[in-house]
Design a protein around this nucleic acid. Structure first.
Lengths: 120, 120
DNA sequence: CCAACATATCAGCTGTCACTTATATAAGCG
DNA sequence: CGCTTATATAAGTGACAGCTGATATGTTGG
């Protein structure tokens, strides 16, 4: 599943927003999301699974609870993908801004955006 | 359709990448995308429609052709949404970087991310 | 140990999205 | 004017994402 697909779901975006403020147990997430979106505990748990399996969140058991936290790497990938469009709203990067942008880009791991081969 | 849903499709992402290099006719886009993804002209046309209707692309008729171009506003929205996670990979913004980040954020239009009301 | 809690998984249903083929609209050209 | 080119729309279909209710797994406290 591609990073953008993961973020395509409003529930998952909201969960990440929650986690952005710090670790949360699955239960707390379920409480808030259930309240806001009116969906069941299994539904939330499934969303957490998607976030986990796609590297957007990490889990840490603490007794019976599971503490979820943001893992930003995939978000950084998205940020990197946006780079090619930044010039549309940042007409002329001055030297330092260029430097900063380059820094962000360089800090990325390996490129390889899955664009399919010409003739399968 | 939410911005992230629009970008959830690899074909649409690729189209935007193509348009990032400058205007293209629908035909040219069809040619490249058809080649790369092996889908039909109507399929590509439908994707272009989604991009159009969600503000990711603009069209300009030129005779029988239609020239498509990137419209970056929705991408900027996404960039703004990412702001709350930037601290995860930019541990300590120095003064100027903060200033730049604030500039980007401030340049955004109105906030209002569609988070549903508590009890419908 | 066992009852109650916390969380994950399973199986099945349903709506939506991306595709196809066929066709409509419209501009250029001889 | 027809004919071809360029693009969009329509209608139908298959796959799959996200939901629910039921249930499995694992933990804690009495």
């Amino acid at each position: 599943m591609h990073a953008f697909d993961v973020l395509g779901d409003p529930v998952r975006r909201r969960i990440l927003e929650l986690l952005a403020d710090g670790e949360m147990t699955s239960g707390s997430v379920c409480e808030v999301i259930g309240e806001e979106f009116g969906i069941s505990q299994p539904a939330v748990s499934q969303h957490l699974k998607v976030l986990r399996e796609n590297g957007f969140a990490t889990v840490r058991p603490q007794g019976a609870r599971r503490l979820y936290a943001v893992n930003a790497e995939p978000l950084q990938d998205i940020d990197a993908w946006l780079d090619r469009f930044r010039r549309f709203w940042t007409p002329h990067l001055d030297a330092l801004a260029t430097e900063l942008a380059r820094g962000r880009r360089a800090r990325r791991l390996g490129g390889a955006d899955e664009t399919p081969r010409s003739t399968p």
